[in-house]
Design a protein around this nucleic acid. Structure first.
Length: 425
RNA sequence: GGAGGUGUCGCCUAGUCCGGUUUAUGGCGCCCGCCUGCUAAGCGGGUUGAGGGUAAUCCCCUCUCGCGGGUUCAAAUCCCGCCACCUCCGCCA
């Protein structure tokens, strides 16, 4: 939720934010009008309520006719108060609904436009040239089959399209990546976490996943619970309804959790392989900090993501995501895209967002500062999303015989193995 | 899943039976000041959060006793529903 004061005092900034995202600024005017209606409803209710209270105080002491008269007056007043209260609640609700529908105001630095309007900030490493090596690269599906690492057929048999099993070295690879990520996070001062993957509507709503994104969310029938699409959700809600000590900031958490996504509307996209799946595991970083520090913290999160992919010896680029592709909560977002050889292009492997106070305001996460209590900033960033990391590793480090070289940093986490050998032709 | 109990301002606690005199009591902790070789003790004051009025950090008002409804002129207090925790029973990886 955006700051209601910003809406009142500088609606043009909010309008600009909408336009930059390619959205209509009309909702801003509706919200401003609703705010005015809401405030006059509050004034009216409080005036009546105040009168009711002061008259009510006279009643216990009053006697006879005076008392009868007072009771008659307060009785009419009572009805008026109830009516004004209902009107106020309705006005509050209308205002809140409008306010909730407005996405975070995009950062001035974020590129304007939609999905394709991102700006490449940097390219790191060189995509491997298989012509030099003299062989045609196999894709991760084929490599996964040869290594006995990925069993897509049985995933489909048991769970349906976009499911898979990680088997043998594939499962080992996941655990290795998770441990490597957790070690790095712990070393950087993060508190490690294993959060619940089922959450109540409040957590989902508060992180902005029940708006336009709701189509992509699994809901548990009959239990009013949702399967999270990222542990950002339980991590953001972790401190909901709390007032944190400002001196404890930044609070940093690194969570390992499964992620579930319907991938609605992605029919025909990435149907082969494990690039786009309904379930995967992920290690996610999450920070609570001040608004002022959030911009630096965002860079730090990106730095830790880069460190991780550097250690995997992968070629990647960093993009500044355009406003229209930020999602509801973020004011700015950087993605890391790793080179996928058989696709001949960069594919998203991590994403880090600065949500400023947008989620904190919805979830009531505040901190006590010297000059008062204010919402904090929340930020999230992927350290490693397992399937896509595996795709990049297998395809990039493959050798002509289908074996895969293990990046040096990962070897200690794979029982010292330097090469993964095929088990099938 | 079943039965019983509990939920008050950071923590503890009074108030709930019998609705109004409660701007929710007191203690601890914390903050400011006074006093004192220092510390401790003592003394005085302050100490939930949200929203609104206003130029305003002064001030005034409204809401907030787990959450949501209801009864009533008036609800921490009475009624209904829900949630959380505790105890016991059942089931279970």
């Amino acid at each position: 939720m955006i700051d209601p004061r910003l809406l009142r005092e500088d609606p043009d900034r909010v309008r600009d934010g909408q336009v930059k995202r390619g959205l209509s600024p009309e909702v801003v005017d509706l919200a401003v009008a609703a705010d005015e209606r809401r405030r006059s409803a509050i004034v009216e209710f409080e005036r009546l309520r105040s009168e009711q209270k002061s008259l009510g105080k006279l009643i216990p002491r009053a006697q006879g006719d005076e008392k009868t008269e007072l009771l008659a007056r307060t009785k009419t007043l009572s009805a008026a108060v109830k009516e004004a209260e209902t009107a106020q609640a309705e006005a509050e609700r209308e205002f809140r609904d409008l306010l909730l529908s407005i996405p975070n105001v995009a950062a001035p630095e974020a590129p304007a436009g939609g999905e394709d309007d991102f700006v490449v900030l940097e390219e790191v490493g060189t995509p491997r040239d298989f012509a030099v090596d003299g062989f045609e690269p196999k894709d991760h599906v084929e490599l996964g089959r040869m290594l006995g690492a990925i069993d897509i057929d049985r995933g489909v048999k048991v769970s349906g399209a976009r499911f898979y099993y990680l088997t043998g070295i594939g499962a080992d690879l996941e655990l290795a990546l998770v441990n490597m990520a957790m070690d790095q996070a712990r070393g950087a001062g993060f508190t490690t976490m294993v959060p619940p993957a089922l959450v109540k509507p409040r957590a989902m709503e508060g992180t902005g996943f029940l708006g336009q994104a709701a189509d992509d969310v699994y809901r548990i029938e009959g239990d009013d619970l949702y399967l999270v699409g990222t542990s950002e959700v339980p991590l953001a809600a972790y401190h909901s309804d709390e007032i944190l000590d400002a001196t404890s900031l930044p609070l940093r958490y690194a969570a390992f959790s499964p992620c579930y996504r319907k991938e609605a509307g992605s029919y025909g996209k990435d149907t082969r392989g494990i690039i786009r799946v309904h379930w995967f595991d992920k290690v996610e970083m999450f920070s609570y900090t001040t608004i002022e520090d959030s911009y630096e913290e965002h860079r730090r999160l990106l730095g830790w993501e880069r460190e991780f992919f550097d250690k995997l010896e992968l070629a990647y680029r960093v993009i500044d995501v355009a406003a229209g592709d930020l999602g509801l909560s973020a004011e700015r977002k950087f993605d890391i895209e790793a080179w996928v050889p058989t696709q001949g292009r960069y594919r998203e492997v991590t994403s880090t967002s600065n949500c400023t106070a947008f989620q904190a305001r919805r979830l009531d996460v505040r901190a006590r500062f010297e000059d008062g209590v204010r919402p904090v900033a929340t930020l999230n960033g992927t350290l490693v999303s397992i399937p896509r990391a595996i795709v990049a590793i297998l395809e990039t480090h493959q050798q002509a015989d289908g074996s895969v070289r293990v990046p040096k940093a990962l070897q200690p986490y794979l029982q010292g193995r330097e090469v993964l050998e095929p088990v099938a032709p």
